[in-house]
Nucleic acid binder design. Structure first.
Length: 735
DNA sequence: GGGCCCGCAGGG
DNA sequence: CCCTGCGGGCCC
């Protein structure tokens, strides 16, 4: 709390407390208002010099909870800093904005770019690609009060962004209008400002790309599999059995690659935007596969021997398994005679080896990779198995693996799995996730051979500071990026292009996706509940609704006007007030448009370099959002896409008009590809995918889906000639 | 509940 | 292109 006796230095640098001129080494400058203070006269002295760069004066920290929260190390000492700030302040050639920018650069420790001749020079790497994410942001994500990079950003309904502290300080002074446009700040917003997480993530990513040597740990690639398939598993004509006995997989709803390690987070779940949650249950393995928890629909282990295993299923297929919930002993695959067209065989007839998927598990053990675990109702001996269906139980790590003689006498590969998930297990009443726990004593290890224990530090581990399990090392890079390699294993032109285009800018743009259409926002709006949408998308979500609805009262014919509640598409907050006069967040819009135009220029340059006759040219021939964003969801509605609350064509046109008008105001802004407002994606029932329309399903079930191999072995060979592609060359299997 | 059967999907 | 696989429907 501020002490009333705290006073700053006056214009001459004389401390108003001790009335002496404060020496340079004893002057402190507030990071918010840039006022100099005499450090020795402060009632709450600074703990370390390191706090100096982020010190906030008693006036500015009135609303701040605790001082000293800053952790960023300054590169400049206190006295030096003040001198530099003074130099900036007294530079007549600079505008106020430029001064603020330079102050910010100084205070953020970015002294190199604060050199007088070239502030904010973009740093280029050897490829000429801009790597300095924060520089790309420019001053577009600066707080309009302190002019520094937004810290805990909040966005007003009038479309302006402030640091939480600055905003709180502003309203704490009794001000109820926006510092920029003087628009009234809604009282709820003033009381409970919400952090705009899209901006947080964008800044975080920008910082990450700045500090990252190459690539980026948090990079999110979006791969779409089976996207043209129906929502449900389906049977081809060829399949002799109905239902899912011999079915093909339906659409994969999440955008992780098939060899994705670790949890499936919200950013990979365009369908529901929550990710795959612990405890989520599906009807069967096909459905489980569609949500990416465990991709292989028969095999218990999903993995690659040279690369690692991503997930396992506990389905009671091997009697040696031993389940204790938080830890379990898993048995490898193989050792069974599968001749005669069998898929499994209870009887073991030879030893298992550490090869194929057994080796994949061992690789995950050695590296400490996170392994997703699903339990099936078919595991009858475990009390932790679900009653029905297949359930996602979270992340485990393989702490040890070995071989031992199994129940049937032949050797089996064995794995000790220990849970390490940030969410509580489905069976526990705890409401926190796992903490590192001691390994259980495994009796059978006494008789084990080929024991493998992890030697290096695990890739997935508990971070004491954050109090959660995180990637301590970058997750293995996916080898399953579509079309990344040609037949000879050389990287393809398309992949090269994709790599090149995966610039910092592109990643930043992804952070500015509309929560409805999931594309980069056009005319971004931030609701008071801090969710971001395209203007058209949000308005279109309530097309046909009026702000006031009339209700008859108590059986009489009196009509009473009542406010119509309009729930934010992302949460249950009423956004009807906001919608009466929604203001575009122009700072965001400017940033998005500048990123897009820069990317377009870069793309054009690389087109020229590539030559005109590139067969993939249509992929990225514009600053096409489809290139940036996953284009899922569009087909969900198909032709009868106007699913939302009776949205009518006129309404769509109307909002498109508004869009256009607003757009035309801005000179030279290029039309964006997604000016068509998208209807909101229909929410799917959790873990279910039965929302597909009958005709659609029927259409696909006719069997013209993907071309399939026509291979077969063992019995039933005759039926082969009836297959749709029976005329194609096919292996002459012996009968 | 056990056994048989076989399309599919992924690994290599 | 072949091999493998802790599925799932159905018959007994």
């Amino acid at each position: 709390m501020a002490n009333t006796s705290d006073l700053p230095c006056d214009a001459d640098g004389t401390c108003m407390v001790c009335k002496k001129k404060a020496p340079d080494g004893e002057t402190l400058t507030c990071k918010t208002c840039v006022t100099p203070w005499h450090s020795t006269c402060l009632s709450v002295p600074l703990k370390t010099l390191a706090d100096a760069a982020h010190w906030e004066c008693p006036d500015c920290s009135l609303t701040a909870d605790q001082p000293g929260g800053a952790t960023v190390k300054p590169s400049i000492s206190g006295g030096d800093l003040v001198e530099k700030i003074r130099a900036i302040e007294s530079d007549q050639s600079l505008t106020d904005r430029e001064k603020a920018k330079r102050r910010q650069e100084l205070l953020s420790g970015d002294a190199k770019s604060a050199s007088p001749e070239g502030p904010n020079q973009e740093q280029k790497n050897s490829n000429g690609e801009t790597n300095d994410g924060l520089a790309i942001l420019g001053d577009k994500l600066n707080c309009s009060i302190c002019m520094q990079l937004l810290d805990r950003p909040v966005s007003t309904p009038c479309g302006h962004n402030f640091c939480l502290k600055c905003f709180q300080k502003w309203v704490g002074q009794g001000k109820r209008t926006c510092a920029i446009c003087r628009e009234v700040i809604p009282s709820k917003m003033a009381r409970e400002p919400r952090i705009n997480s899209a901006i947080v993530i964008a800044i975080r990513n920008a910082k990450m790309s700045q500090s990252n040597v190459s690539g980026g740990v948090s990079r999110v690639n979006h791969f779409v599999h089976n996207k043209d398939r129906p929502d449900k598993a389906y049977t081809t004509e060829r399949a002799k059995r109905s239902g899912k006995a011999n079915a093909c997989s339906g659409k994969i709803f999440v955008t992780v690659p098939l060899d994705h390690f670790g949890p499936i987070t919200a950013e990979h779940d365009p369908e529901r935007n929550v990710g795959v949650l612990v405890g989520e249950t599906w009807e069967d393995r096909m459905e489980c596969r569609q949500w990416g928890a465990h991709f292989t629909h028969v095999a218990g282990i999903a993995g690659q021997s040279e690369y690692g295993a991503q997930s396992v299923a506990l389905s009671g297929g091997y009697e040696d398994d031993e389940d204790h919930g938080e830890w379990f002993l898993y048995t490898g695959s193989g050792g069974r005679d599968l001749s005669g067209n069998k898929r499994t065989n209870k009887k073991q007839s030879f030893d298992q080896k550490f090869d194929k998927s057994n080796e994949a598990l061992r690789v995950s053990c050695k590296n400490g990779y996170p392994v997703r675990v699903v339990r099936s109702h078919k595991e009858k001996r475990s009390s932790y198995a679900p009653q029905e269906g297949v359930r996602y139980d979270g992340i485990y790590r393989i702490e040890k693996c070995w071989r031992k003689a199994g129940i049937q006498g032949f050797k089996v590969c064995r794995y000790l799995f220990v849970r390490c998930d940030n969410d509580p297990a489905p069976w526990t009443s705890e409401n926190n996730g796992d903490r590192p726990r001691e390994l259980p004593t495994v009796e059978e290890l006494k008789h084990a051979t080929d024991i493998t224990e992890r030697k290096k530090s695990p890739a997935w581990d508990f971070d004491e500071g954050q109090g959660r399990w995180i990637w301590k090392k970058p997750p293995p890079e996916s080898r399953k990026a579509p079309d990344a390699y040609d037949e000879e294993g050389k990287i393809t032109k398309r992949a090269r292009r994709q790599k090149r285009n995966e610039s910092v800018k592109e990643r930043l743009l992804k952070d500015f996706s509309c929560l409805v259409c999931r594309k980069v926002m056009v005319l971004p709006l931030t609701t008071p509940c801090a969710h971001n949408f395209c203007k058209a998308c949000l308005e279109n979500s309530f097309a046909g609704q009026s702000f006031i609805k009339q209700r008859t009262c108590g059986g009489t014919r009196t009509l009473r006007a009542q406010k119509n509640v309009m729930k934010c598409p992302s949460c249950s907050n009423d956004v009807s007030d906001f919608l009466q006069n929604p203001q575009v967040n122009r700072e965001l819009m400017n940033l998005i448009e500048s990123l897009q135009s820069q990317m377009k220029e870069e793309n054009m340059e690389s087109e020229e370099l590539d030559g005109a006759n590139d067969e993939d040219a249509e992929l990225c021939d514009e600053t096409d959002d489809a290139c940036i964003e996953v284009d899922m969801g569009e087909e969900i509605d198909g032709t009868n896409g106007k699913s939302n609350i009776g949205a009518e064509n006129e309404n769509c046109d109307a909002s498109a008009e508004i869009l256009k008008e607003e757009k035309d105001e801005k000179e030279g802004s290029k039309p964006l590809s997604n000016t068509n407002p998208q209807p909101p994606i229909e929410k799917k029932a959790l873990g279910r995918c039965d929302a597909v329309s009958d005709d659609k399903e029927a259409g696909v079930a006719r069997g013209e889906m993907p071309k399939r191999r026509n291979k077969r072995r063992g019995a039933g060979e005759e039926a082969c000639s009836l297959a749709p592609n029976g005329g194609k060359k096919r292996r002459g299997n012996k009968t």
